[in-house]
Computed example of a mutant assay.
Amino acid sequence: MATYEYALRTEALSKSFKQVRAVHNLSLSIKRGEVVALLGPNGAGKTTTIDMILGLGSPDAGSIEVCGMTPRRAIEHGKVSAMMQTGGLLPNITVRETVKLIASFYPNALSPQEALERAGATNFADRMVKKCSGGQQQKLRFAMALINNPELIILDEPTAGVDVEARRDFWAAMRADASQGRTIIFATHYLEEADDFADRIVMMNRGEIVADGTPRELRAAGSGRTLCATLTAQPSDVEDALHAFPLTSLDMRANDFTLVAEDTDEIAASLISRGLARDLTIATRSLDDAFVAFAQQEN
């Protein structure tokens, strides 16, 4: 029975490659049972962070603890498994044979059939790996990652390069497995994946954490709300009225305008009561907008 509280703890973790600073001063704690997305563009430091979590790279500075021990010990004890962005598969054996082969390396492995079922791979289990689609090969990699029944599973860009349907099927399998209480950390640059699947999102940019919270918290804290409306007065009159409110941005056109602010309800009420605008719409901004806002704060 696990006795640790945190599946992952890092303190001031840093890693550079010659003149390139990949990860800088990264401090992060993830509790057991959390589903956490590492979100950021290519080059944000996600894969380098994952490599250090898995003991595949050593930090230049700082500390890291995985499942209450060093990364290498956690791997040796079968507490951690990973599904990496790259990694070859044996093309001339079947999916089932591949999973059986991996199972033979672990003394307390799941049965190959159970791993295949949990990964959603039973309907093509007897197909040769080389004849599997990209999405099917990702499910195979997921079954391989599950075979040792890890307490923490790491996914690095798990659906990169697969089509929309395959991506949807993969996450359905992941949701079912996550419901059993496994800790999952996945790196992605697909914002909709982070928004739909993660309990918590850690946004990274240029090797640093720029935001950390639930999807709803990040949307609210990072970008406010958007108000769009049609002008019923001169643009200068509307601009004068808006000066009374703190705005994040304002885009004024000939016949309409769009603004971003924290208290859009109060702004809308003021504009309507003064007859300055009509056809108002208010919407919560997207996670994409939030990420851009957080990244700009760091520049």
Results as ranks from 00 to 15, higher is better:
Ala198Phe: 07
Leu242Glu: 09
Thr264Tyr: 06
Tyr6Ser: 13
Ser58Gln: 15
Leu8Gln: 04
Leu28Phe: 12
Asp195Cys: 07
Asn205Gly: 02
Ser273Cys: 06
Thr47Lys: 10
Ala61Asn: 03
Leu54Gly: 06
Ala119Leu: 09
Asn108Ile: 01
Ala244Pro: 03
Lys46Ser: 08
Gln297Arg: 15
Arg73Tyr: 00
Gln138Leu: 07
Lys46Leu: 13
Ala229Tyr: 01
Leu28Ser: 08
Met144Thr: 05
Leu247Trp: 01
Thr248Asn: 14
Lys15Ala: 10
Asp177Gly: 00
Ala229Pro: 01
Pro41Cys: 04
Gln296Tyr: 03
Tyr190Gln: 09
Lys100Asn: 09
Arg253His: 13
Glu193His: 08
Gly40Met: 01
Ser286Asp: 11
Ala176Glu: 15
Ala160Leu: 04
Gly87His: 05
Asp156Gly: 05
Met203Leu: 01
Ala12Phe: 00
Ile64Arg: 11
Trp171Asp: 09
Lys100Asp: 05
Leu280Ile: 15
Arg206His: 14
Phe245Leu: 01
Asp51Val: 00
Gln296Leu: 02
Glu11Val: 12
Asn25Pro: 00
Ala172Asp: 09
Glu151His: 12
Glu217Ser: 11
Ser58His: 14
Arg9Trp: 04
Asp126Gln: 14
Gly135His: 11
Gln19Ala: 12
Leu39Gln: 06
Gly40Trp: 04
Arg72Ser: 07
Glu65His: 04
Ser27Gly: 02
Val36Trp: 08
Gln180His: 09
Thr258His: 10
Ala254Met: 09
Gln296Asn: 13
Cys132Asp: 08
Asp177Leu: 04
Val164Ala: 15
Ala187Ser: 15
Cys67Tyr: 05
Leu191Gln: 02
Ser111Val: 08
Gly43Glu: 05
Pro150Ala: 08
Leu8Met: 13
Arg141Glu: 01
Arg274Val: 03
Arg274His: 04
Val36Ala: 06
Ala7Tyr: 05
Ile154Arg: 11
Leu39His: 07
Lys18Asp: 15
Leu13Cys: 07
Ala178Pro: 02
Asp51Asn: 15
Leu38Ile: 06
Ile75Pro: 03
Glu298Ser: 13
Ile75Thr: 05
Asn299Tyr: 07
Thr122Gly: 06
Arg127Met: 13
Tyr106Trp: 10
Leu231Phe: 09
Ile75Ala: 14
Met252Tyr: 05
Met84Arg: 11
Pro235Gly: 14
Asn148Gly: 10
Cys132Lys: 10
Val238Asp: 00
Glu5Ser: 10
Ala211Tyr: 07
Leu259Met: 12
Leu140Lys: 07
Lys15Ile: 11
Thr10Phe: 13
Lys131Gly: 07
Ala61Ile: 01
Gly33His: 00
Glu117Gln: 14
Thr230Cys: 05
Ala229Gly: 06
Arg168Lys: 11
Leu146Ile: 11
Thr10Pro: 11
Ala254Trp: 02
Arg141Tyr: 03
Asp196His: 13
Thr49Ser: 15
Ala268Lys: 14
Ser58Ile: 14
Ile184Thr: 07
Phe186Ser: 02
Met69Arg: 13
Ala145Gln: 09
Met84Pro: 00
Leu54Ala: 14
Leu140Asn: 04
Ser63Pro: 00
Cys132Ser: 13
Asp169Tyr: 01
Ala121Gly: 04
